[in-house]
Amino acid sequence: MPTTAPMLEHQDSGSGSAGESIALNDLEKRLLDRYQKGLPLSPTPFRDMAEELGTSEALVLQILQRLQRDGVISRVGPVFRPKRIGASTLAAMAVPAADLERIAAIINDFREVNHNYEREDHYNLWFVVTAPSQERLQAVLQEMERATGLPVLDLPLERQFHIDLGFPLWC
C-alpha cells in the first residue's frame, strides 16, 4: 500500500484500492473513450468534438475542465514519445530492503530520472533514465553505480510492438 501517492497518474499503480472510482455520466464516458486516442487537429478541436458528440462546445470544455480537476484525466494535449527526444533506458536495481529508502533517494536526486517505482521482485527498484545523448546516459548509469555501490541493469528499448492508443475503459 502506498502511504503517500503524490501523483496518481496513469500506468502502474500496483496495489491498493484506496477510495472509490469517480462516477462518470454517459457523455463523459463517450467523450473520454473516444478522445483518449486523439483530438481533431483543427483550430477549434473542442467545437469539432461537440459536433461529433451532438452537444455544445461550452459543455465539452466544462466536462474536460471537471475531468481534469477531479484527476480523471491528467491533461488534454500531446503525448510525447520520450525516446525520440534524447536517449533513454529502463533501469533496474536489486536493493536490500533495509537500504531501499536511502538508495531510492540517491537515484531520485538525478534529474535524469523521471519515473521511479518500487516493485515486488529481487529487482525492486525500477526507473526510467532520460538524457540528451547516449554518451550522457551511459555516464549517468555509471555515476549511479558509483554513488550506490550497486550494479544497475540497463534495459533499453530494442523494439516497440505496440503504440499505446488507449484501451477500452468501459467494457
Binding site: Q11, I73, R84
Partner: peptide
C-alpha cells in the same frame, strides 16, 4: 504539431486518462 505527429515526436494529442482514478489499480509489468 502536425509534423511532430507524423515523425513520431508526438504519439497522439488526446485526453490522457488517469487509469488509477478510473479504477484500474492492479496494473502489472
Amino acid at each position: 504539431m502536425r509534423r511532430m505527429l507524423s515523425n513520431g515526436v508526438i504519439r497522439r494529442i488526446g485526453a490522457v486518462p488517469n487509469h488509477y482514478t478510473l479504477g484500474f489499480r492492479g496494473n502489472g509489468m
